[in-house]
Design a protein around this nucleic acid. Sequence first.
DNA 1: CTGAAAGCGCTAACAC
DNA 2: GTGTTAGCGCTTTCAG
Lengths: 344, 344
Amino acid sequence: MKQPSGKVTRSDVAKLAGTSVAVVSYVINNGPRPVAESTRQRVLDAIRLTGYRPNGVARALASGSTKTYGLIVPNIGNTFVASMAHVLLQASLDHGHVMLLGDAGDDRQRELELIHSLLNRQVDGLFYNSVDRHPYIDVIKASGTPFVMLDRVEPQPGVSMLRVDERQAAFQVTSHLLSHGYQQVGIISGPLDMLNAQDRIQGWREAMAAHAVPVDESLIFPASYTRQGGYEAAQRMLAGPGAPRALFASNEGQAIGAIRAFSERNIRVPQDVALVCFNGTDQSAFHVPTLTTVRQPLRDMARCAIAMLQNWNGEAQLQEFPHYLEIGESCGCMPHKENNATTI
Amino acid sequence: MKQPSGKVTRSDVAKLAGTSVAVVSYVINNGPRPVAESTRQRVLDAIRLTGYRPNGVARALASGSTKTYGLIVPNIGNTFVASMAHVLLQASLDHGHVMLLGDAGDDRQRELELIHSLLNRQVDGLFYNSVDRHPYIDVIKASGTPFVMLDRVEPQPGVSMLRVDERQAAFQVTSHLLSHGYQQVGIISGPLDMLNAQDRIQGWREAMAAHAVPVDESLIFPASYTRQGGYEAAQRMLAGPGAPRALFASNEGQAIGAIRAFSERNIRVPQDVALVCFNGTDQSAFHVPTLTTVRQPLRDMARCAIAMLQNWNGEAQLQEFPHYLEIGESCGCMPHKENNATTI
DNA sequence: CTGAAAGCGCTAACAC
DNA sequence: GTGTTAGCGCTTTCAG
């Protein structure tokens, strides 16, 4: 008979099984002491009968581990962030950890609040993707909690970090556009004070140089990493003189926003403007047109991030991952499945 | 001087402040006993000096509350789920609670594992959106943990639930298409054994009846609630005879997948096929074309869900929310900003 | 207003 | 192989 409420404790089980509480623990934890098979069965039966559920809070206090990780993100509504969260969640569960999710709602103050909150709750480790370029690294360090930065920040001693070479990826993706023959490639960048925005712009610059194309600073359109940001940036671009025929959007949301803005002016992608973007998700493959995008090996990154926390020794661990270019229709070098000769 | 690690405990603070540990608690918790202002300051200083961080696990054990909620979702990669998670996270934080996020990865077994995991961790309450129509309600009930179902399930005693009248919403959205003059409206439904899929199909049926249109069962295309599902369903629809010129997709992902499939056959939305969908997110407004979609008042729902947990008395609470139809371009009754006379 | 002390439910020595 | 018990760090009652 299951109890109506979760008030059953380990000593109830012990009583019913006719053993001591220690034995119950040994059974539950498969150690650290052996238990006779017959006793073990009695305990197991008692657990079933009582509907006993080990109190994780008490276990955490006694054992010193919560089996919980924390994840701080700017906004779970961002599709790339959600993809990252998804793989981290899966990988953590594989290691027996659940995740406390802190969604900062793009608010710096809230982010700090959340960090304290998760730290107080004694997470075994923290994955951290900051709202902006001023992550609260000191706070986390002071707590002694293992943590991994998921986005690029100023290199610092004692800060572990995952990253892809965004400068190189930006170089590659811009070069891809240039190789199509475009002489002008615009860039919708992230907020200029963010390092990953700088990296991407830098790669863009280098690609222009490599192709002997003069860099036109007016082709940089800073925007937030959102659909709205991309939408507005594209509008600004169209409002100005000499809008480029090729464009590099710094994330998938911006790309989609830009395409929306274009469509409102009857500008087609890729026929009128070739487009590539960063950090595409599965969404890119279903978009019309499909998006040419730089993708990151998220699954590997998640596994690595967890390994970093587990092998934590207080020293910084840097792990760089390869990116890959997923060619879609948006850059124009693929046969476009869609055309305008329509019948049904 | 902050300590290098999180080993500072309350008694360290007490020692430094020259008080007892109880007083430190009184200061931290603003009660339950008053503390002299001067003592209070000494304690506060000691806390600052030591870098003391209250141990949430110990607090939870002693106080009986973890200040943590749990959220079980099928997959955080689904944009609608992510939107829901976002608002719940924000609302929870407003009430001082953090969230343990359980992402089942669309796997029933994993979902159960997660439920046990969160329950063991003594969450103060659980928000539950099941992978399929067989939610593990008994497990949660047996634990005595307050919980709210976020999706529609078989009405049961003792099960609180949020919902919108999906039958009615489906009726409305289908009627909207019919009012445009279409005689045939297809439906990409969810998996047929899910209640919300049945509800939506039922509303679709009733709308046909209300408009005196004979119901053609072959126009029901069951699919998973994903872009891939919508894509495949649309392909099936196009492969069959008499593909309808109007279509109701059961969620945003399906709609986007369907549009992709259409575009590959040079079928335009809304010119060739009028489309509406359920549970659109902000994404719908940036899509080309913008999507006509049924939206739910997520923010209100989140607040309500939390209130249900807080006022938990073991009795089922049912709360129904109004939906609203957001008219976009995809159904064809709006001036389409996009056209095909293109120049740049 | 402050201090002492009894738990909270469990882990893991340490005994036997 | 099993039982006893000292913590884990905190909340809160009960005495001063």
